[in-house]
Computed example of a mutant assay.
Amino acid sequence: MIEITHLTKRFGNAIAVDDLSFRAVPGEVLGVLGPNGAGKSTTLRMLTGFMSPSSGTAIVCGFDIRRQTRLAQQLIGYVPESGACYNEMSVSGFLGFVAQVRGLRGREKKLRVMALLEQFELMEVRGQTIDTLSKGFRRRISLAQAILHEPKILILDEPTDGLDPNQKYRVREQIKDMAQNKIVIVSTHIMEEVTALCGRVLVMNKGHLLADSTPCELESRSRYHQAVTLYAARPLDVMTLAMLPGVAGIEAGTEAYSVRVLARPGAVILPAINTLIVKQGWDVPRQEVERGSLGDVFRLLTREQRP
């Protein structure tokens, strides 16, 4: 388990992380979501022992990151935002070097490196220098080095930033596979990353923790939660729709004759809409019910924090 208690980091008069506390447990993929400058990377650097907190601490599987740094770091695999590769080295040479730093020798070292080359589909480029490879390959190499010593905790800072859709999918699938028996913490500012990977989300801004919840619960706070979009064959009577119980408002849709009907918090309006469609004889060949917009909630939370 990871337990962060009142973690704070100051740079002069500026507070990068302000009194942050949370827990994480094995089998959990925890997303840390926030805009640039939210304090995400600073939090991860303190958690991994690369930066000392101004106050507070983190307990990593029983070890205090301030007083027992080396013992805690042995349990952590870390992929910083900038990657973690020596670009002039070959792929296999770099992984071999990391294995040796992590205390692996001889046959054990060779077998572990070969296993990771296979796992991350790096065999075809194992002899190439890292600086000749695409960003997608470099991200996979960074992930491989992070789990080489089979850590209990995996910490990833913007793991798919800058990758194309196919590369993102591949890296995310690899992260999911690795998360089965580890604590995985993913820092990101990308909403789709959270919904694709995380079972729990911390929302940060300006060093403060604004929310600690599941993606579904956060989506339920959106003004678009349970909204129903109607795609009609001809114009609808929006005034009649607006008078239905539980309806909060009507917005124009993106297609001709389409409208989005917003629900009040906690209301489920689809049954009443369907009853009205039948009663009025409207031609509505398609409907969509929304879960809610995580981006909408994120903007609301960070906007409310502004002075």
Rank of each mutant, 00 (worst) to 15 (best):
N274S: 13
Y257L: 06
V247G: 09
Q100Y: 06
L7R: 01
M191S: 00
L276K: 00
G199Y: 07
G27H: 03
G162F: 05
G27S: 13
F137G: 01
C198F: 02
L197S: 03
I155N: 01
V247H: 04
D157F: 09
G49R: 01
E192K: 13
F97Y: 15
I153L: 12
L230F: 00
I269F: 09
T8A: 08
I250Q: 04
F298H: 06
E255V: 14
H189M: 10
L230S: 00
F50R: 11
S41M: 04
I59G: 03
K182T: 02
S187G: 07
R66M: 10
S213I: 03
L294M: 06
V203C: 04
R234S: 13
R107S: 01
G62M: 08
R10M: 14
L270I: 10
V194A: 02
T8G: 08
S82Q: 15
F94G: 03
R200N: 06
T229Y: 02
K110Q: 13
H6S: 14
V91Y: 03
P265N: 11
S220E: 15
L116Q: 05
G34R: 02
Q119W: 09
Y257V: 11
A144P: 04
L230Y: 01
Q226V: 07
V60T: 05
S142H: 00
A232Y: 00
L122V: 13
A99Y: 01
I59L: 15
H6C: 05
I2A: 00
G199E: 14
V247T: 06
P271Y: 11
T42V: 14
M191W: 00
A252G: 13
R299W: 08
A115F: 07
A72C: 12
I277T: 05
Q287N: 06
P285A: 12
V297L: 11
P245L: 15
P165A: 11
R306K: 15
I59R: 14
V32E: 06
R139N: 00
T43K: 02
V278Y: 07
S213A: 15
R105I: 01
E192D: 15
A24T: 10
A14L: 12
V228Y: 06
V32D: 07
G27Q: 02
V297P: 02
M51L: 15
Y86F: 15
I59C: 06
I190V: 15
A14I: 12
S92N: 10
R126E: 14
G93Y: 09
L241G: 03
A99G: 15
K9L: 08
T5H: 08
Q180N: 10
V79P: 02
V60W: 05
L276M: 12
R264F: 07
V184P: 04
T302R: 07
R70W: 06
T48M: 11
T5F: 07
T48N: 07
I175D: 04
G266F: 04
I190R: 05
V91I: 12
A272F: 08
R291G: 09
E192H: 14
T8R: 07
F94L: 08
E28M: 10
